[in-house]
Structure formats: structure tokens, C-alpha cells
Amino acid sequence: MAAPIRTLCCAVLRNSSRRFSTTLGAQGGEKWRKEHGLPRSGTEYGPLTDLPDWSFADGRAAPPMKGQLRRKQEREVIARRIVMLNAEMDGGMDRWKEKQDEAKRLEEHKESLLFKPKGKLLLKKKKPQSQEP
């Protein structure tokens, strides 16, 4: 019984002028939402997805649903990663500044080891600095 129905459906689809699309259609307004700092769709985050759907009559909150717990856990993992990467970046910047300071100290030390001017050259260098207008 299933075979004649299947062949009938296939024959109808082959003769149909409409074709099925297997590509994902673009969500309406996605570009506008991204430009305005909103999520791609209205169901990614926000009060409609993060808050419970119901509460008890006496005012108590409903227990969190699995999806809410999962999203909360994902956000915690992302927040921990951000903090870790930020600490790594701060440490890297500190090490870079220390290297720059060390290079500057080394350069100053090399300059201090150079020969100093003697005799007439020493007097010529001091003379322009000691003159006051």
C-alpha cells in the first residue's frame, strides 16, 4: 500500500512547477538588528527567553527551565574566558612594558660607557649651556 502512494507523490512532485528549496532563508530584519546592537533574532536573549514563562499564584518564581539553565551556564563559561583572556592581555602588556624599560636602561647604560669629552671639547660643551640671556 505504501509503494503506490510513494510513487504517486514522487510523480506529482516531478511534474510540479514548484521546487523545494533546501537553502536557509534569510531572517527578516537581521541586518537592521545587528546595526542597532540587537541579537540576530528576537529569541536569542532578552526578557522573552531569559525570564520564566509563569509564576506561582502566591508570587514565587517558577523553577528555571533547562534552556534557561543552559544559557546561564554558557554565559558563565564565556564570562570566565573573557576574564582569563583579559588577565593574559594585561600580563602581556606588563611584560612588554618591562622589556621596553629594560631596553631603555640598557641603551642608557651603553651611552654612559662611551668616552667622555676631555679638555677643550669638555669646555665647548659646557659653555653654551652655562650662558644665560
Rank of each mutant, 00 (worst) to 15 (best):
R14F: 14
L48M: 03
Q100A: 01
T22K: 04
K116Y: 02
E74Q: 11
M89Q: 15
P52C: 08
V12A: 12
G119H: 03
A3R: 08
R19G: 02
Y45W: 09
P128S: 11
Q100H: 06
W54K: 01
R60S: 14
R60Y: 08
I78D: 06
Y45T: 04
Q73K: 12
P4C: 03
E76C: 01
G28L: 04
N15T: 09
K97R: 13
L38D: 00
I82K: 06
P64W: 00
S41P: 00
P128T: 09
L122K: 14
E74N: 08
S130K: 10
T23D: 09
G42N: 05
K127A: 06
L106Y: 06
K99I: 06
F56T: 14
P64A: 00
R75F: 04
E44F: 02
W54T: 08
K72A: 11
L123G: 05
A26P: 15
G59H: 00
G59Q: 03
R14P: 05
E88H: 13
E111M: 06
R80E: 07
M93Y: 10
A87I: 13
Q129I: 07
C10M: 10
K104L: 07
Q131W: 10
A11N: 07
A87M: 14
Q129F: 05
E108T: 08
V12C: 10
S112T: 13
G46A: 07
K124R: 12
K126E: 14
D90R: 15
L121Q: 14
Y45S: 00
T43R: 10
R80T: 02
V12P: 12
G92I: 01
D53Y: 10
G59N: 01
L38Q: 07
K126F: 00
K126T: 09
V77P: 02
L48Q: 09
S55L: 10
S16V: 03
E44Q: 12
L24E: 15
K72D: 07
G59V: 01
R105T: 00
A61T: 15
S112P: 13
S55V: 06
W32R: 04
V77F: 04
K31R: 06
I78V: 15
R18N: 07
L106P: 09
E35F: 00
D90P: 11
K97L: 03
W32S: 00
P133V: 08
R19F: 03
G42C: 04
L48T: 05
V12Q: 10
F115N: 09
A2H: 15
K72W: 04
P47S: 06
E76I: 09
G42D: 13
L48E: 07
Q131G: 10
D94M: 05
G46P: 06
K116N: 03
T23S: 12
P47M: 04
V77Q: 14
K34G: 02
